[in-house]
Design a binder for these strands. Structure first.
Length: 745
DNA sequence: GGGGGCTATGGGGGG
DNA sequence: CATAGCCCCC
């Protein structure tokens, strides 16, 4: 057990305290993954059979890393540990137990697009307005209800929820939820939340035999990133660990300061409830940071102190004071891209860093483009994580749609996707009629075609026969055989081959890559991802839960990483650039309204800066193109929370913080959420910028009515000084090239 | 009834 | 800047 010697005292205690409830509060870089994996290895060495250990994580990457490191210590028997994401472990169990909760074993997993399209259909069927009942918003309500274990029946009976919806002029959400729930069930489909909700139902509802079975299997339960669990996830964990006679062998690991997923229902309440539910709990705090040098750690400590609620702890490091934080200021998003790219080149030369040592972290995916352009210009190789996943590309989803309908004939979302893809002359009118009949009769669209309810003649007949031939193939062939037949006979291959454009070629490559992936899956008997199910259904379940960051790449692994701050959690690099540090972007304008949400943005910033081992650079742009408009934002409040002793350069300061190009900014920082248009966009007709002159009265979408006091600069660079009476009587300087202004007659 | 092109609209983070 | 809805033509 030599590995135990590599741990510090607290880490070792957390590893070897195996019986009873344990909570490990693990600061950034404090060796959390080591503790988790060594704990599992230690359990196995103590004689606990690996198949009785359950380790739940939030990402596939974390699960994979854990499994690899367990295998490193205990060898191949580590493979039998139940280690995976909540969603993948539950999907695996649900597939085995599906019939007990009235789902087909080959149930479909609806992704976000499927869910959204179904919700949109339902809203339209109910003859409601899709603007008032914005599908994403409705889906968010449904998702949040599910995460809080509120079924459609409970939703309708819940006064708070119903009142809230009524106040928001969406009183029928409860009914949409009801219909949505029924339709998923009818389609033999589960959305991401259902993987949790149905798992709960499986264990809870009159299924004592099933519950006992899994309580017996999972004798030791570990939960990573516990601060990110929602009410429902904790409810499931309790069903597995909190019962009469339970040894309470549960270990939760997390850090309240790194809780960044409340938007998907995560609640810090779970930590408080955990202490209450398991009173004999023993807590260990990992406070020594082995990742970053002092300026970074202290800056992080300072930032997080501004949050009101937190478990007291002080992160410290022995790695020396290290380098100070670099501040990069740009006048525009484009300049920010250029400066970051040139700083990277300088770092590489001066500090001998490689691409793989460097990351650029941004708040929103939309920011990636500019950095991408500049890195390419400088011949720096990079990889963008997140964004459109491989499995979300059209050509890939089309093939997957056929495979889905092949194994689950009730999968209406797949049906709608492929009925006329590629074009085979079955149009909207026909599809709508089939869909309408299916809803009216409470059966699947496929059933409408095959029961004779809708005469399947000609093109429809051929479609039915084609799908049936795929089903036949699925019976006597493997997943790859079916996929190949689909690609060839559906017409997808043909269509892609006929597209000679670069984009078309790349789409054909994607289709081929998908087939290769399926082949690999079929041939790989080692069950590396904890899946022993090599069937088509097994394949589809597996990839439904993969994200972009899980994909393998052929490229040599020496690239600069670009990803969102959320995706970066759990990762580390020698040099980290956190970019776009502006009010309304980071913190996001969506979070400006509530202190709780601002605290979460701050935790996100805390997570971001603690990814850096040696070099941290923070950047912002005073103006950026956003939502089709040039906008001016103040530097992020988070920057002011770091003491200037931690910054590399002392710059001329304006108040606490220096603001470049002060002339382009309003007199005082305007930290207001006045992003509601002051002028109705429907009535707004921007005038050509050449026509705008001194003395005119103009309208601006955000700032409202104003008078042009002066114009200076020439041609493209004309800047108008405008006095807006609607917004705090402020004067703003706006570049006419970008501003959209309407002249008032 | 089906297909293609255009306009309008909305836009956060993820399994 | 991407997708949905709409209009017009076949």
């Amino acid at each position: 057990m030599t590995y135990l010697q590599s741990l510090n005292d607290v880490q070792r205690q957390a590893v070897t305290h195996t019986n009873g409830p344990v909570m490990v509060i693990a600061g950034p870089g404090s060796g959390k993954t080591r503790v988790l994996t060594f704990r599992i290895a230690y359990l196995i060495e103590q004689g606990i059979p690996p198949q009785h250990i359950l380790a739940l994580t939030f990402t596939n990457k974390a699960a994979r890393e854990m499994k690899e490191r367990i295998a490193h210590v205990v060898g191949s028997k580590g493979d039998r540990v139940w280690a995976g994401t909540f969603h993948s472990i539950f999907a695996r169990i649900l597939r085995v137990e599906a019939t007990k909760i009235d789902f087909p074993p080959a149930f479909t997993i609806y992704d976000r697009d499927d869910s959204k399209s179904l919700v949109t259909d339902i809203i339209k069927e109910m003859r409601l307005d899709t603007k008032q009942y914005n599908p994403s918003g409705v889906l968010a309500r449904i998702s949040s209800a599910k995460s809080n274990l509120i079924t459609p029946e409970l939703y309708a009976k819940n006064d708070d929820l119903v009142l809230y919806d009524r106040m928001n002029k969406r009183p029928q959400i409860y009914e949409i939820y009801e219909r949505y729930y029924k339709r998923c069930k009818q389609a033999g489909a589960m959305d991401f939340d259902d993987l949790l909700l149905q798992m709960y139902r499986l264990l809870q509802e009159n299924r004592e035999d099933v519950r006992y079975k899994y309580q017996r299997i999972f004798q030791y339960v570990l939960v990573d990133e516990f601060q990110d669990t929602n009410y429902l996830q904790y409810a499931i964990i309790k069903l597995l660990t909190l019962y009469n006679g339970s040894p309470h062998n549960i270990c939760i690991v997390g850090d309240d300061a790194q809780s960044i997923y409340s938007f998907r229902g995560a609640t810090i309440e779970n930590i408080l409830k955990f202490e209450h539910d398991f009173p004999e709990l023993v807590t260990y705090k990992l406070e020594q940071n082995y990742r970053s040098t002092e300026h970074i750690v202290q800056a992080a400590n300072m930032v997080i102190q501004n949050n009101s609620k937190q478990i007291p702890k002080e992160i410290w490091t022995e790695l020396g004071s290290g380098h100070k934080i670099k501040m990069i200021k740009a006048v525009s998003d484009v300049e920010e891209g250029r400066l970051v790219a040139s700083t990277i080149i300088e770092y590489k030369n001066r500090l001998h860093l490689e691409n793989k040592d460097i990351a650029i972290l941004y708040r929103t995916n939309a920011q990636s483009r500019i950095f991408e352009e500049h890195l390419r210009k400088q011949n720096l190789s990079y990889r963008i994580f997140g964004g459109l996943s491989f499995y979300q590309r059209k050509e890939v989803k089309d093939i997957l749609g056929y495979l889905r309908l092949t194994i689950n004939e009730r999968d209406d979302e797949a049906f709608k996707r492929i009925i006329n893809t590629p074009k085979r002359g079955i149009g909207k009118t026909t599809t709508d009629q089939i869909a309408e009949m299916a809803v009216a009769q409470g059966v699947s669209m496929w059933a409408i075609l095959t029961s004779g309810a809708y005469p399947a003649k000609g093109k429809l007949q051929s479609f039915v026969m084609m799908i049936e031939s795929f089903r036949q193939k699925a019976l006597d062939g493997n997943a790859y055989d079916v996929a190949l037949k689909v690609a060839q006979e559906s017409g997808i291959y043909e269509e892609l081959r006929q597209d000679p454009s670069l984009e078309g070629i790349s789409r054909l490559e994607n289709a081929n890559a998908l087939l290769d992936g399926i082949k690999e899956f079929v041939e790989n008997d080692n069950a590396d991802e904890g899946t022993t199910d090599r069937s088509l259904a097994g394949y589809l379940a597996n990839i439904a839960l993969l994200t972009d960051s899980d994909e393998k790449t052929d490229e040599e692994p020496n690239y600069i990483s670009l990803m969102t701050t959320h995706t970066a959690k759990g990762l580390e690099w020698k040099a980290v650039f956190v970019v776009g540090l502006e009010e309304n972007l980071f913190p996001s304008y969506m979070s400006m309204g509530s202190p709780d949400q601002l605290d979460e943005e701050r935790r996100l910033f805390y997570v971001s800066i603690t990814r850096a081992k040696m070099f941290l650079a923070l950047s912002y742009a005073t103006s950026r193109y956003q939502f089709g408009q040039f906008r001016y934002n103040d530097p992020s409040r988070f920057l002011e929370e770091i003491d200037e002793q931690h910054f590399e350069t002392t710059v001329e300061r304006r108040g606490k913080f220096n603001m470049p190009e002060p002339k382009l900014l309003a007199d005082r920082p305007s930290r207001k959420k006045d992003y509601e248009p002051r002028v109705s966009p429907a009535d707004f007709k921007p005038s050509p910028s050449e026509q705008i002159a001194e003395g005119m009265e103009v309208l601006h979408l955000q700032f409202g009515r104003g008078k042009i006091i002066a114009i200076d600069g020439a041609r493209e660079n004309r800047v108008a000084t405008i006095h807006f009476e609607d917004t705090d009587d402020q004067e703003r300087r706006i570049m006419l090239r970008f501003a959209k202004l309407q002249i008032v007659e």
